[in-house]
């Protein structure tokens, strides 16, 4: 995707969650969004186990 497309996608995502992200913040947010997505991809490919509600907090 081009930078313009990524910026447009960010605006759509922000609108979807009720945020209005000013254009002056866009560069920093997009940098961090790309970093988060790389981590999320790794997490998405992990082989998790089902949650046990009793174990959500206490390790």
């Amino acid at each position: 995707m081009s930078d313009a497309q990524i910026l447009e996608e960010m605006k759509v995502l922000a609108k979807g969650v009720g945020l209005d992200i000013p254009a002056i913040f866009a560069a920093g947010v997009l940098t961090n969004l790309a970093l988060l997505r790389r981590h999320a991809a790794l997490v998405g490919h992990a082989d998790p186990v089902d949650l046990d509600p009793a174990e959500l907090l206490v390790p």
């Binding site: 922000a14 969650v17 913040f25 920093g28 947010v29 961090n32 970093l35 186990v49 089902d50 949650l51």
Partner: peptide
């Protein structure tokens, strides 16, 4: 701010996935 705003744009299912991953890591 920039890190938090980026976090706000992540899909909700990721939050559930990280908890499931946490259990397997544990």
């Amino acid at each position: 701010r920039d890190r938090l705003l980026a976090g706000a744009l992540m899909p909700a299912h990721l939050g559930q996935q990280v908890r499931r991953v946490r259990r397997s890591v544990k």
